[in-house]
């Protein structure tokens, strides 16, 4: 029996994209932090992504201020003018491939807009929203 489980589980992990593994990690953490957690939601992710907050340098911003409301569009850092390639992997296949980069930008951008790091649930919600759009 053990052998069968091993055979079926291993290929799933190998074929999965790095982002799926990261989502599983976030899910495990979200369950610990929130007993009522019942999976990530792209809808909550959209809310996190589009709502405005007093962010860095006292400016009222949302994620869309730089990334635009269209995840497939090229954005622009409103502070430096630097162009930002689309977030959606459908428009930019390199997106969400490098986990080191994903973690770095989730940390930085939550601080930019929310002035704090996101929770595991919030990060998962936003990632799901990006993946689905």
């Amino acid at each position: 029996m053990k052998k069968i489980i091993l055979v079926t589980v291993v290929p799933i992990f190998i074929s999965a994209a790095p982002i799926d593994g990261f989502l599983q990690q976030l899910e495990a953490q979200a369950k610990k932090e929130n007993l009522n957690f019942s999976g990530f939601s792209a809808k909550r992710g959209e809310q996190i992504f589009t709502s405005k907050h007093i962010g860095k340098r006292g400016k009222k911003i949302s994620c869309t201020s730089c990334h635009t409301g269209d995840l497939k569009a090229t954005g622009e850092n409103i502070f430096t003018g630097k162009k930002i390639k689309p977030l959606s992997p459908k428009a930019n296949p390199k997106r969400l491939q490098n986990l080191k980069k994903v973690k770095k930008w989730l940390r930085r951008n939550f601080k930019d807009v929310y002035k704090r790091e996101g929770t595991a649930q919030e990060k998962g919600d936003v990632l799901l929203y990006i993946l689905k759009n």
Binding site: K56, R57, F79, K100, K104, R107, R108, K111, D112
Partner: peptide, 8 residues
């Protein structure tokens, strides 16, 4: 300059 730019 007001931004979290921390890296590895």
């Amino acid at each position: 300059f007001g931004t979290d730019a921390t890296i590895d």
